[in-house]
């Protein structure tokens, strides 16, 4: 054992973590600390560097620069030992397509050198959990995309990992399967498992993550609890306006007088305000007649748009 005493509080600790592919810097010196038992999220637009980061934290991809420890161990020298305690749901499924659902689970158990009896028992339990028991003998090739995703999730749990790394785990899942997974993740968390998640679903991030970071262009642009991020980077309320055909909508500059910030999306315009009803009254008072208008509370989605967004008028 390289160290003794209590297990470390920091399950993952990264300082200046960098990944370069040739000349391209996909991850630009990020600092991350994930505590034992917490559920930590990575958000960010396509190409932000989330998967590159997850692969480094999975002790697979080698950091180009910076420091990284997982379970307090150095992945460059202790990779096999670290990975023995990890469960990984990669963004893209990596299942053996020509073989059966059951075989895929059992073989993975063998990779972890688990006893056969334990593999059999866990396989049955996990098939039950992802509701694939009746498809246990089907070829993976014959499963639907969502079923394969569920199998990948089950596979990541075969070794009862202490740290579960999920890269867009719910992409392709139907709502029921998604809620089942959330439920399972809560349970794992209660049992002390640490979770690291990326997702493009902001509701999911809000539900699941104790803390999260928003990445853009390889760097962390914000971090905090979902609540903190919303308080820091958005207003209390949002007015969503739809103006129908193009050309009819008012210029952002005109709307800017009613709001702290205006966000023009292809299908709607968002006004960031403290009091939504009041702002809406102002809009109508100015002679504007949106097709529809909705007042709601700010969400992570708004934070995300703000931090990584496209059209932005203050």
């Amino acid at each position: 054992m390289s160290w003794s005493g209590a297990e470390p509080e920091l399950i993952v600790e990264a300082r200046g973590l960098t990944k370069r592919f040739g000349d391209f810097e996909a991850v630009r010196g990020i600092d991350v600390a994930v505590r034992r038992g917490e559920s930590f999220g990575f958000l960010g637009p396509n190409g932000a560097g989330k998967t590159s980061t997850m692969r480094m934290i999975s002790a697979v991809s080698r950091p180009t620069a910076g420091e990284l420890t997982i379970f307090g161990l150095d992945p460059r020298t202790e990779g096999p030992r670290i990975r023995a305690g990890l469960g990984v749901v990669p963004q893209e499924d990596t299942l053996e397509l020509e073989l059966s659902v059951r075989w895929n689970l059992e073989m993975f158990g063998r990779y972890f050198d688990l006893p056969r009896a334990e593999i059999r028992q866990r396989t049955a339990e996990l098939l039950e959990f992802v509701q694939l028991s009746d498809r246990a003998n089907s070829r993976v090739d014959d499963l639907s995309g969502g079923m394969r995703r569920r199998l990948t999730i089950a596979r990541a749990l075969i070794n009862q990992p202490q740290l579960l790394i999920l890269d867009e785990p719910t992409t392709g899942l139907d709502p029921q399967a998604r809620h089942l997974l959330w439920d399972r993740l809560y349970r794992l968390k209660r049992e002390g498992v640490t979770l690291i998640i990326t997702t493009h679903y902001m509701d999911e991030a809000e539900q699941l993550c104790d803390r999260l970071v928003v990445m853009d262009h390889g760097a962390i642009v914000a971090h905090g609890t979902p609540r903190e991020l919303i308080d820091q980077h958005s207003t209390r309320e949002v007015v969503e306006l739809r103006f129908g055909e193009e050309g009819v909508e008012p210029t952002p500059a005109r709307l800017a007088s009613f709001a702290q910030r205006v966000e023009v999306l292809p299908d709607r315009t968002l006004l960031y305000v403290d009091d939504g009803d009041e702002a809406l009254r102002d809009v109508h008072g100015d002679g504007l007649t949106p097709l529809s208008a909705l007042v709601r509370r700010s969400s992570l989605e708004d934070v995300f748009l703000r931090l990584t967004g496209r059209t932005l008028v203050e």
Binding site: V60, G79, P80, P90, T94, E96, F108, Y111, F112
Partner: peptide, 14 residues
């Protein structure tokens, strides 16, 4: 394509 070697190196295998 099927990326099963990527699955293998996510386990203790090198």
């Amino acid at each position: 394509w099927v990326r099963t070697y990527h699955a293998a190196v996510a386990t203790p295998l090198e």
